[in-house]
Computed example of a mutant assay.
Amino acid sequence: MPVLDLPPWPYPRWIAHRGAGRLAPENTLAAFRLGAAHGYRMFECDAKLSADGVVFLLHDDGLARTSNGSGIAGEQDWDALSQLDAGAWHSRAYAGEPLASLGAVAAYCQANRLMLNIEIKPTPGHEGQTGREVALAAARLWSRADGNAAGTTPPLLTSFQPEALASAREAAPELPRGLLFDALWTGWLETALTLGCVAVVCEHGLWDLSSMTQAQNAGFRTLAYTVNDEWAAQRLIALGVDSLITDRVDLFPPSA
């Protein structure tokens, strides 16, 4: 297997999952603000397409769990989606919090010198289109930033869907990519190499000495999700993981 010649890793060790984990409504600007208040400099979020092509943040295909909406989010226009309440489900303190567009998140991150890991989360059947449009939007939004501060560091694009990453690579090859895994299926590293990824991102229990060694020997940076216990963090750091994604922004100092 060829060894990749990769540039230095520009991202911090600790990444806040969906903004601030479970402490605020996930994938909203309120969550980003809370994660930043805990000192986090990088955030993971989920991005998908509205029916009229706007890139916005949402994890699920459906709206019911994290908003007062219903139905499939990707089948609705952004005008309707932007009027939903994406905060009241979490707690009364966040009632009225809207869904966030990628444009709004980019503006916040760049103004505050923060970094982003955008997980491409396609509505089923729209993998290629979503990968392309998320990558194009990210390339456009971050090209507006000036200087070399953290907020201008290009976002890391990740996905469980190889088709989405392939389309992202074609649309914006300059943006770094990572393949996500919830199981290490046959050909996992070869697929990441074929997609031109710089990183592999695994459910934290998948990382052991063997898988870590294979990934590092192939030249990949390694990330783990979702790391919410101190014993798990210590184990992964000892293995040599590059970055850890956590809900527990209240437990793990981001500079650790």
Rank of each mutant, 00 (worst) to 15 (best):
L57D: 03
E163M: 11
A51G: 01
A24D: 01
W185F: 12
G219Q: 06
Q161D: 08
A107L: 09
G87K: 06
S50Q: 01
L23T: 05
P154V: 03
R113G: 10
F220D: 07
Y94G: 07
L244T: 11
G125D: 11
A106H: 08
L236I: 10
N217I: 00
G151M: 01
P124F: 00
W231N: 13
L102G: 11
L141Y: 08
R22G: 02
R18D: 08
A31I: 06
N148K: 03
P98L: 08
N117K: 04
P10E: 02
P122Y: 05
H204V: 11
S143Q: 15
V227K: 10
R248A: 15
R13M: 13
L223C: 13
S143T: 05
L244Q: 09
G125K: 10
L156F: 05
I237K: 15
L244H: 08
A256F: 03
Q110Y: 01
V227A: 13
Q216P: 01
W14A: 04
A16M: 03
P25A: 10
G53F: 10
Y108C: 06
C202Q: 05
L57T: 04
D77L: 00
A238D: 15
D242A: 11
G103M: 03
A256W: 10
A93G: 15
S255T: 15
F220G: 07
A233Q: 07
G128S: 06
A100Q: 02
A93V: 11
D229V: 15
G62R: 13
T152L: 00
A150H: 04
Q216E: 13
T191M: 05
T226W: 02
V198G: 10
L239M: 09
R92I: 04
T158H: 03
G103N: 13
M42G: 12
H17S: 13
L84H: 01
G96I: 12
S167E: 14
A232Y: 02
E190P: 00
Y108E: 06
A106Q: 08
K121V: 06
Q83F: 00
C197N: 05
F56E: 06
V249T: 14
L102F: 15
G53M: 12
G35D: 06
L206D: 09
L175F: 10
A104L: 03
A106K: 08
A93W: 06
W188V: 04
T246F: 02
G87L: 08
L81Q: 00
L195E: 01
A37I: 06
Q216N: 12
L180F: 03
L81P: 02
D229W: 11
A107M: 03
